[in-house]
Design a binder for these strands. Structure first.
Lengths: 214, 214
DNA sequence: GACTGGTGTTACCGCTAGTAACACGTATGT
DNA sequence: ACATACGTGTTACTAGCGGTAACACCAGTC
């Protein structure tokens, strides 16, 4: 059991794992989030127990799969968030990056937003509400960190930043989801509307004639 | 087949349907969104085929169940939205109403946010992204209508209102979900933070020393 | 009394996630 | 050279799911 052999094995296992993940990716892209383990195994040219040896259970495979895409998307978002430009431009660029991603690959995005599922009887924690997709949480935390690092929000800075991070991400997600289903306008228009909302146009708008206003 | 008898039968069927829905409610509240049809039938004291005769399939039962809670929650939200007060107060009241609801019954809320699932091979439309929970969509449309009715937003009023409706609902949902899982602050504080976000504090905040600002 | 319609059952189908048990190749220790 | 251990792969299975077909019972009606 010398070191070189162990690394060899590990390398082989890692390569195998990547191949399996790519096969799973193709199936999920084709069949949606409810792709079966049988289908994934068949696509990879092997049988189920191998998948289970590599990933434990379906949740493990899905987590590994989600991590790849989540990391990639988060990298794009960070890039847009870090670009050298005015705050408004940067916010719009980030929104546009996210919307472009979900527009380009709706199946992947749909998969990422899907909660864990826990088929038979595992991982059930009903008493709390933490069912949201990991991607949303990670994006929220990431954005919160950026906000807290860069904005001066007074004494309650941290709390405000975290609430805003998750809130803005949720706004982006829900609006994007609705937009993807109905396509009521162009992406650029959607970006502008959302940025306007974040820029306080809701509070600044005048009441409509005849009513007390929202 | 005279009218009175048909009404009698219909009444009986309706009562039965309500009983079944209440049983399903109890099971979902106990087991979460993945409650099985067997469990629900057992809770109602009957067997599966009866459930299927009443609701068609699992999606039908879940849709009926969701409609009850969704209608109830939307009524509460409408009440908060229509209260006689300033705009900011009303926004805060609406946010608080939603958060209080999900805080009081997280399982129900979790169930409502769950997408349709389509067990075996039904209702699969992967090419579009319309997987979101009906509750989110309905709340978004409802809020959009209120915004459009009451605010003067210029020529692009309708589009802005719809984007904002879905965006604000998504913000509320994501922030509420995160808050419910981590409980980082009181409900009132969360409400204030979110209202501040909607009131443009993000755009108004100053840059932190040493960086160009978000 | 035969007939019809609603309510209920049992027993099944095909599918899923997940696993146990077995077979093959290969490198190693004695 | 041979036995041993190990990783890789298979087949065949379990338990449970959503959903359904076929049958039983019990009312009211012609």
């Amino acid at each position: 059991m010398d070191t070189t052999q162990r690394t060899d094995q590990q390398r082989s296992a890692d390569r195998r794992r990547r191949e399996l993940l790519e096969a799973a990716d193709r199936v999920v892209l084709r069949d949606g989030p409810q792709a079966s383990m049988n289908a994934i195994a068949a696509e990879a040219g092997i049988t189920k127990p191998i998948l289970y040896r590599h990933f434990g259970d379906k949740g493990g495979l899905y987590a590994a799969l989600a991590k790849r895409h989540t990391d990639a998307l988060l990298d794009s978002l960070r890039a847009a968030l870090d670009a050298p430009a005015e705050r408004r431009e940067r916010v719009e660029a980030t929104l546009d990056t996210y919307l472009a991603a979900i527009e380009a690959r709706p199946q992947v995005y749909r998969f990422l937003m899907h909660p864990a599922e826990g088929g038979t009887a595992a991982e059930q924690g009903f008493d709390v509400g933490k069912h949201s997709a990991p991607l949303l949480r990670r994006m929220g935390e990431e954005l919160a960190q950026v906000i807290e690092d860069r904005l001066d929000l007074g004494p309650e800075s941290q709390q405000l930043a975290r609430v805003w991070g998750h809130g803005i991400v949720g706004m982006m997600h829900a609006a994007g989801d609705w937009w993807l289903g109905e396509r009521p306008c162009s992406r650029a228009e959607l970006v502008r509307c959302l940025a306007d909302l974040l820029w306080g146009r809701l509070a600044a708008a005048g009441d409509r004639v005849g009513g007390p206003g929202f």
